[in-house]
């Protein structure tokens, strides 16, 4: 009763802070970074830099949406970077061949869904921990890609292929992809039955099973959707430059996982939102660009990412402990 009384008296603002705490922190960090670095070096806020920051990193945000689904469902995927590399190469190869553009756009997305459905099924039905399956997939996809392409670059795609370079009202297409997919998925996660089921299974699989859900199917569905977003991310990645390097983008999986975690997706599953992960991906883009504008060597970027992920995880654990202590 006392708890209900406290809940009743809370203002709308405090409920907002409670529900979207991590997202607001990330948003505040982005704003602070833009203001501070923009004051030090006004070119940081120039149109060119803003566009390259938001548009050039939109594929990370899109991939992080799928990663968030997987982590919320209680799993992890360390192979997403290799998968994006493979799918981008498929897209480029099809575009260079005599296939229509829509084939080059849709086949990679389908392949992404198929591969990750398979991965999800291995995890769900053979009860192999997701870290092991995806570590294995990482080396299968990466090794397969490098030995198939031998690191050659793909060039000579038809001009219609470059969807990431298109603009509408002066804003690059990847930004639309990022914003629309994030909002759609945020609503879907909040209101759709499967979206709720992903939270339930990630929070407590046995309780979810007892309430009539099938954790195995939910896991496969989360991975399948993750494959879809990896496919879209691969398209944006493949079409943003005139060449496709047909290698695995270094550290991509780490950046994507970090975006999800810093955006408030708890690594223990069951909580987090895709809005947070997208904001975190934008924060990264700002940080890596800010390092350049503050004349800090780009070689420190990964150390900064590592510190960020560590700090966020420690804060998450501390918050959980406080939460538990409060309930007792």
């Amino acid at each position: 009763m006392a708890v209900a009384g406290v809940l009743g008296r809370r203002s709308a603002a405090s409920r907002l802070v409670e529900g979207y705490g991590q997202e607001l922190v990330v948003l505040g960090a982005i704003a602070a970074l833009l203001v501070i670095v923009g004051t030090v070096n006004p070119r940081f806020l120039g149109e060119n830099n803003l566009i390259s920051m938001f548009s050039g990193n939109a594929y990370i945000a899109v991939a992080a949406i799928g990663m968030s689904l997987v982590i919320i469902s209680g799993h992890i995927d360390v192979s997403v970077g290799s998968l994006i590399g493979v799918l981008a190469t498929i897209a480029g190869t099809l575009a260079v061949g005599d296939y229509p553009i829509w084939v080059a756009w849709t086949v990679p997305v389908l392949v992404g869904v198929v591969i990750n459905t398979f991965v999800g099924a291995l995890i769900a039905y053979f009860r192999i921990p997701s870290i092991v399956v995806t570590l294995g997939m990482l080396s299968i996809l990466k090794g397969g890609l490098i030995s198939y392409t031998a690191g050659t670059w793909i060039t000579g795609m038809p001009p219609e292929f470059f969807i990431a370079q298109a603009r509408l009202f002066g804003i690059p297409a990847p930004v639309y992809f990022m914003v629309v997919l994030t909002i759609a998925m945020a609503l879907w996660m909040r209101y759709a039955a499967l979206g709720r089921a992903i939270y339930a299974v990630g929070g407590n699989p046995e309780a979810a099973r007892a309430s009539g859900l099938y954790p195995e199917r939910v896991c496969v569905a989360a991975f399948a959707m993750h494959g879809f977003f990896a496919g879209i991310a691969a398209l944006l990645f493949a079409t943003q430059l005139q060449v496709i390097q047909s290698t695995v983008p270094p550290n991509l999986e780490l950046t994507v996982i970090t975006a999800s975690v810093i955006g408030g997706v708890s690594i223990l599953g069951g909580t987090g939102t895709v809005i947070g992960s997208t904001l975190a991906a934008i924060l990264f883009a700002c940080i890596s660009s800010a390092l350049v504008f503050l004349n800090v060597s780009a070689y420190w970027l990964r150390a900064v990412l590592g510190l960020l992920i560590l700090a966020t995880v420690l804060a998450d654990m501390a918050r959980r402990r406080r939460h538990r202590a409060g309930r007792l």
């Binding site: 780490l254 420190w300 990412l305 590592g306």
Partner: peptide, 10 residues
């Protein structure tokens, strides 16, 4: 996973 990034970054 976090220290993988941190140590490599260092």
């Amino acid at each position: 996973l976090a220290t993988l990034a941190l140590y490599r970054g260092l």
